[in-house]
């Protein structure tokens, strides 16, 4: 072939380059297509497999574990359904738990666990619903719609849904329990028991928008100083349910820690009983 020092060599060069890039892109397109089709057929096989072995997956923990391990090593999340595209309810749908409930359980646990640092594992049920809906709607708060009772949209999460989820979660021994305090339902997501005094303090807090003031507690319960101190301290230190407000205390605030010689200084606010409005 003749070497081309002239102008034509330049254009030839660019023709080569462009045809190479066309070739490479067509190769990668065909690779992607074949990969997609094999993934699709794999997914079908996986569903077929899970249908066939439905009983084993449900009843045999070892088998279920292997199945899950297989899914995760393949990078398939069995929780993610494909209902939107194909109408089938995802892999778990085959197994008798509806995708909705499964999702809701995951979201319920998510809300309870992620708020634990703040509320010590006690959260109002309506707050759970609000946060779950927030998760489901991708960050938008829908309280403005659901505030008006009876006007809830379809697809909204109801109290019944949450209670059903708690039932589903029961076998996991997660210890999620429902407490009714002053006709408000709370979910307790840590297994430690609340003793009698704690429950009484909570029911007082439920009427005050969260605030527990020693003097008011004494007025309502008739407890002695020590009992009140222990009760409040446990709320804060043992369970993390309460936040101390040491500036409610007329005192020079030297330590700033809210606890002096094992005694709570100032008011304690039960955060689960405090009404936060998030816009």
């Amino acid at each position: 072939m003749r070497k081309g020092p002239g102008l034509s060599a330049l254009s030839r060069q660019s023709i080569y380059t462009s045809s190479y890039s066309t070739l490479s892109s067509s190769i990668s397109t065909s690779q992607i297509t074949s990969l997609q089709s094999s993934l699709e057929s794999f997914r079908e096989l996986l569903i077929e497999f899970s249908m066939k072995h439905k009983k084993d997956i449900k009843d045999d923990p070892a088998f279920r574990h292997q199945f899950q391990k297989m899914c995760s090593s393949l990078g398939i999340d069995p929780l993610v359904g494909s209902s939107r595209s194909s109408g089938s309810g995802g892999v778990w749908g085959m197994l008798g738990i509806s995708e909705f409930e499964y999702e809701l359980c995951v979201q319920l646990v998510d809300v309870c666990v992620s708020s634990r640092g703040q509320n010590g594992g006690l959260i109002r049920l309506d707050e759970v619903i609000r946060r779950v809906e927030r998760l489901r709607s991708g960050g938008k708060d829908r309280s403005s719609i659901t505030d008006v009772k009876g006007k809830t949209n379809e697809g909204d999460v109801t109290e019944q849904d949450i209670l059903r989820c708690l039932k589903i979660l029961e076998p996991l021994k997660s210890g999620y329990t429902v407490h009714t305090i002053q006709s408000t339902k709370y979910i307790r997501s840590v297994p430690s028991e609340l003793n009698m005094d704690q429950s009484i303090l909570l029911s007082i807090a439920a009427t005050t928008g969260g605030r527990l003031n020693k003097r008011e507690v004494r007025g309502q319960t008739g407890w002695g100083e020590d009992r009140i101190n222990v009760g409040l301290r446990d709320c804060v230190m043992e369970h993390g349910l309460g936040w101390v407000d040491d500036q409610s205390f007329a005192f020079d605030h030297l330590s700033g820690s809210g606890v002096v010689e094992n005694q709570i200084r100032g008011d304690v606010w039960i955060i689960a009983a405090t009404n936060f409005e998030v816009v």
């Binding site: 804060v236 040491d246 700033g256």
Partner: peptide, 29 residues
């Protein structure tokens, strides 16, 4: 509730929660 300042800054609701201004004795809180 969240509060919007004159300059347009939105303070979150927890900013109106009195204990927010006391550093909490419980380590995880």
């Amino acid at each position: 509730t969240p509060i919007t300042s004159e300059s347009g800054f939105e303070y979150p609701a927890i900013w109106s929660f009195p204990p927010f201004f006391t550093l909490q004795p419980n380590p995880s809180t």
